[in-house]
């Protein structure tokens, strides 16, 4: 009987000592976590895609609650989710148009000339390391589909003419394709921007024209057409002032000799 009692007592004593120590440690080492963080984390998409620049949605939620980043930190969120987060954080949601990826190249199989046959690894990055793939343009799309590969949202597909086609509906603006493209011809633009110069070729007109039918040759016709500076040509490449043209869904000029200036998307997209 005595040994049973002794066993019970000593075990109980050891257990009690440890539980007291643990209780004290728990008080001392308690992690104060803002309950908002968990709520914001729940409202975020939870894909942990890292597009916000944080290791995951939880880390982004923490930064949102602490106010280190704005409400548009997560490029994947849709408006409804943003509203939800704004509500949790108790701040007003600023109206911002969602951004989608735009491919600034028309160098598909039809338009661009080939300079060589490429038989290496089927990846734009690999091709760009060797000689830039088979297409002659040093600025345009290589067409091996690195952007298609990285898209987590099934929003990019390779089109029939060897150019990726971006589904503006599905695109979340996560910028994975922007990073993946070794030629930097995919850019994020607000969805209500429609007028684009779909070329990145900065060579002189003659050599640009030689490699691609749709290249911007820097002829400055667009610049002359709009004296107020809607288009500017720099380094033989035109660029658009989006504030000027995107009110209406129509081409400001049809004078572009190579049709490099194009409308992207559809009217009244949201």
């Amino acid at each position: 009987m005595n040994s049973v009692l002794l066993a019970a007592l000593s075990m109980g004593g050891i257990g009690l000592t440890f539980s007291i120590l643990l209780t004290i440690a728990n008080q001392k080492l308690k992690v104060e976590e803002d309950p908002k963080i968990a709520k914001v984390d729940e409202a975020l998409p939870g894909a942990n895609c890292g597009a916000c620049g944080y290791p995951g949605c939880a880390a982004c939620a923490e930064a949102l609650v602490k106010g280190e980043v704005g409400i548009d930190a997560c490029p994947v969120c849709d408006d409804q989710e943003r509203e939800e987060i704004a509500e949790i954080l108790g701040i007003e949601l600023e109206e911002g148009k969602r951004k989608v990826a735009v491919l600034l190249c028309q160098g598909g199989v039809k338009n661009v000339n080939n300079k060589a046959e490429y038989q290496g690894i089927s990846s734009c990055l690999a091709a760009s390391f060797v000689n830039g793939g088979e297409r002659a343009c040093d600025y345009g799309c290589i067409g091996k589909g690195d952007c298609v590969e990285v898209c987590d949202f099934d929003a990019i597909h390779m089109g029939a003419d060897g150019l990726p086609v971006i589904d503006r509906e599905k695109c979340t603006g996560c910028a994975r394709c922007v990073e993946a493209c070794p030629r930097n011809i995919i850019e994020l633009h607000p969805i209500d921007h429609h007028v684009f110069v779909l070329c990145k070729n900065q060579d002189k007109g003659a050599s640009a024209r030689k490699v691609c039918d749709r290249a911007c040759i820097g002829c400055k016709i667009c610049e002359k057409f709009d004296k107020s500076g809607g288009f500017t040509v720099d380094n033989f490449l035109a660029s658009v002032d989006h504030d000027k043209y995107d009110k209406d869904f129509e081409l400001p000029t049809d004078k572009c000799p190579t049709d490099a200036i194009q409308l992207v998307g559809e009217k009244d997209e949201e």
């Binding site: 040994s3 002794l6 066993a7 000593s10 075990m11 004593g13 050891i14």
Partner: peptide, 11 residues
């Protein structure tokens, strides 16, 4: 200090 002196090594 606890188990051996009290013959509680089975614990």
């Amino acid at each position: 200090n606890i188990l051996l002196p009290n013959n509680l090594t089975f614990l």
